[in-house]
């Protein structure tokens, strides 16, 4: 059994705690949070130990890994503390408040040879994996445009609020929603290197943006759009999609479908001319325990697997997450200077 602990028992932290609790190779030894309400629930109904001090938890319990799901501003000091003590780390997204902090943590994790992963769970959805595979098989021919989009109903009326309404603490649609899309673009299509335009708009929130519209130029020369809005109540929940257009057609991919339109058939992929739809029912990654979506369990399974097999992780490394934070900085800077 691998001993694990969690800090930050918000929506994601509790969800991770449940997934880890059900994992056959993991012993969840402790949880940590600032809220006595949540800790008391754990004290009353479960047998894991509870802490209010992260460092004390790591010192006393000596877990082999920690899951860090606190507000973003605490990520850097907590991840650093864990890595310095030889503890593998799974950290929620967005990674850190500045790209340089993320780069420092990447270096530290690599130097110590520790498994490091960030919770960009979309990479564990079968449809997005399939999109990446299809692009690598060059089914679209020369690619000339992409669009990464995400919409959802997080802030739909005017209200002040929590750390999420403070731009200095990693709140806002750019960090919360757009980071997912940037990370998908970066790992599936190409790394954004230059921002050609950026609009950060606030509709309901004070202090932070509710929407991000940006023009991105990638390292492979391709350009495209990032369109993200977390104040769109026409969506029941967060809906993320990538569209890629090439000379031989286009692919529209979201969490449930990969819709492929081809001008010419690609026999090696058994793809006919015209539309082909591939569904998540055929592409989902199998998991032993399901909560809210296969991807949440699959990413934790992968993290635990990397630890138990001494494998270097390829998905959602600190390096990749730090790069996403760098793109976020580039977008913020562009919107300020123009």
């Amino acid at each position: 059994m691998i001993k694990g602990a969690i800090t930050g028992l918000g929506k994601m932290g509790i969800s991770h705690a449940a997934i880890l609790g059900a994992h056959p190779e993991v012993e969840m030894v402790a949880v940590c949070d600032a809220s006595s309400l949540v800790l008391n629930a754990f004290n009353k109904f479960s047998s894991v130990k509870t802490y209010t001090d992260f460092e004390k938890m790591v010192e006393s319990e000596k877990p082999e890994f920690v899951v860090i799901a606190t507000p973003t501003k605490y990520h850097y000091p907590m991840v650093k503390y864990a890595l310095e003590r030889g503890v593998h780390v799974f950290c929620e997204k967005p990674f850190t408040l500045t790209a340089s902090q993320g780069e420092e943590l990447t270096e530290l994790a690599n130097q110590k040879g520790l498994v490091n992963q960030v919770g960009f769970h979309n990479h564990f959805i079968g449809t997005f994996r399939e999109l990446k595979r299809l692009l690598s098989q060059n089914v679209l021919g020369e690619v000339f445009h992409f669009s990464g989009e995400s919409y959802g109903p997080v802030v739909t009326k005017e209200k002040g609020g929590t750390w999420r309404s403070n731009p200095e603490e990693g709140g806002g649609c750019l960090y919360d929603y757009a980071s997912h899309v940037i990370n998908l673009i970066q790992e599936i299509i190409g790394r954004p290197e230059k921002i050609d335009g950026a609009l950060l708009k606030s509709f309901y929130s004070k202090g932070v943006e509710d929407a991000v519209y940006s023009l991105l130029r990638l390292d492979n020369g391709l350009s495209g759009t990032l369109l993200v809005n977390w104040s769109d109540e026409t969506y029941r929940k967060m809906s993320t999609s990538l569209t890629v257009q090439g000379k031989n057609g286009k692919i529209i991919c979201d969490a449930t479908e990969v819709k492929i339109y081809l001008k010419k058939a690609v026999p090696s992929e058994k793809l006919e001319k015209g539309w082909t739809i591939k569904y998540i029912t055929d592409l989902a990654l199998p998991v032993g325990f399901y909560l809210r979506g296969e991807e949440y369990s699959a990413q934790i399974d992968y993290f635990v697997d990397c630890i138990s097999n001494g494998r270097k992780s390829e998905y959602n490394t600190f390096e990749q997450a730090a790069y996403t934070d760098k793109v976020i900085e580039m977008i913020v800077n562009h919107s300020k200077t123009n």
Binding site: I14, A18, L20, G21, A22, F45, S47, L291
Partner: peptide
């Protein structure tokens, strides 16, 4: 199911 499976994973069966 979201709540059932969360309680299940957290092993808070008494709930």
């Amino acid at each position: 199911n979201v709540l059932v499976d969360m309680i299940l994973g957290l092993k808070m069966y008494r709930v």
